[in-house]
Amino acid sequence: MELSLATRTVGEHTVLEVGGEVDVYTAPRLRERLLELIDGGARHVVVDLGRVDFLDSTGLGVLVGALKRLRSAGGSFALVCDKEPLLKIFRITALDQVFPLHPTVDAAVGADTTGAGA
């Protein structure tokens, strides 16, 4: 399935809903969209992986890139993911210790302690 990207706003947070397959071919589009959002002024970004059915190392690299960029800009970055196959990928790569991971968008927004919490 092709990559799908949709953006919505929840309070101070920009939520990017990602669907389909995030791999070496589609990850550059995800990177571009995240850069557009950050360059456009978004400082508190939540990426919802709820409709992602494949995620590889290239996609993970893009997410880490966004995390670093937002941290250095004083912002926040969190992921929404409740699918066990994807959670296993985060555990195996130890990225579960790098990203704030939440089961729902509400939980991600509520847990944000950077001053943008709802």
Partner: peptide
Amino acid sequence: TDEALTTGVGFAL
């Protein structure tokens, strides 16, 4: 770098 990160994560997977 992004490349080093992706390579390292790919190998971990």
